[in-house]
Structure formats: structure tokens, C-alpha cells
Amino acid sequence: MIRLALLASSVLALAATASSPASASQADAKKGPTMGPAYFTGTWEDPMPREILRPELGVLPERAGPPPADPPLKPEALAEWKAAARKNAEMLAKGEVPITPNALCQPPGFPGMMGPVFPIEVLQTPNQITITQEAFSQTRRIYLNEKQIAFEDAEPTYYGHSVGHWEGNVLYVNTVGLKDFIRNRNTPHSDQMSIDEKITVAPEKVTIEFTQTDPVYLTRPFSWKVEWAKRHDYKMNEFVCENNKIEVDPATGLQRLSE
């Protein structure tokens, strides 16, 4: 049904292109009819970049919000997760920062790259949506109207294997095949874990509702949300992790800044 609708809209779009190239190209700029029913090519960002721009404000309380609920892990994994979170909090409170892949210039991967604090650029082409994140120049590709591959065929990667389809102005995406250490809030996962995204596109706002499912580690799926605001004039900066002075202190194994 959905496929038929998509096919019909593609045919209509093609017909429009054929009948009036000039007006069709104007329509492309506004709507991108061959790219899908909603056009969100461009640069986006967390709606509250004030933290970046104004240090006197600190990180805004509404950003910090209440602490998110623990992931619904099965008991043994939950106990380990809580112990790790507690240890991390205790260390940070003392100013001891454990070494992390990020600190050593490894990119966060998916879903971390979809969140703040750096801007994000979306590029729509007929069969693919490409999303790039300024931090670490991260890139993920969402293949449109393809069937998701089987878990056993999904090579573990930083961004996973993503397929998507449009229903009106909502892009539904499913991602499988993430490396073990690419984790949402340090939540362990199996090779049967998948993350669904419901990406609702409005003219100035994108809302992404994530749902993580994992029959091995989780008692039930759990969800979280990210919002983006349009940044009309922003041009993405290059980000190559070129000069990293964060290093492992050989005495403590903790992060330090080299002199």
C-alpha cells in the first residue's frame, strides 16, 4: 500500500518534471519531490545552542532535566550497568576522568551522533538519506525502501545498517549491526539489538523518537527523543581529530592533558 503510494507520488513528480522543467526545479528547491514526501536536506541543530554561545549561562537547567530512567536491562546486566554508572559518577566527582574512546578521537557512532552538541547536516538523494555530524565528521546512510538485512548478515559497525521508508512527513528507520562498544548510555546490547527511529519532519523542526529493542539484554523496548531546529545559515565545519593532547596518564590510567 505504502509502496504503491510512493510509486504514485514518484510518477506524479516525474510527470511534473517533464511538463515544466523550470517550475519543477523551483519545486525541487522547496520540496524535493523525487526525494520523498518531506524535504529536510540542510543543517540542523539542537534547539538550545545557548550553552555553546554563552558560558555565563552554563548548561541550561532545561537541558539537564531530570536524570533519564535506567535502561530496562535484565537483572544481571542492570546490576553491572548501575555499578559502572556509580563508579563513573564517583570518579568524575573527584575529577578523575576515565579514558574513553571519544577522548582518543574515536567517533561516538550511532545513536550518539544524532544528538547534541554539534550541528548535523541532512542530504537527500532519491534512494538514500545521508546524515553527517560535525563532530568527528561522522556519516550514516539510510537506504530507502529496501528490506532490512538479517541480524546474522549485519557486520558490526559504528553506524549500523539502516533502512527507511516515508509515511507522509514521517521517516521510519530501522538500524541493526552496531559494534558491541557503540552503546546508547553505555547500555550493553546483543547482535539482535535494533534501534527504530520515527523521524517527524516539519518545516523548522525535526523530532526523532528512538526505540531500542533487544531480546537478549532488555526486559522491554525503551525509548528516548531528540529534537533538531533548522539552522538556515550554518555551514558545517571540517572536523578532523588532528591534534589531540588528551592522553592516558601512565601512572593512573586516567585522562590527562599533555603539557
Binding site: A64, N102, P116
Partner: peptide, 21 residues
């Protein structure tokens, strides 16, 4: 601000490293 920095570290953020040191 300090509490939020700790949260950011635990969250899937794109920040490079914590300033807690």
C-alpha cells in the same frame, strides 16, 4: 553546569571529553 557535564559524559553526546579533570 557541573552536574550536566557529568550527564553529558554518560549520555550519547558528541563531546570529545569531560572537563572534570
Amino acid at each position: 553546569a557541573l552536574a550536566a557535564v557529568a550527564l553529558v559524559v554518560g549520555a550519547p553526546a558528541s563531546a570529545h571529553h569531560s572537563f572534570a579533570m
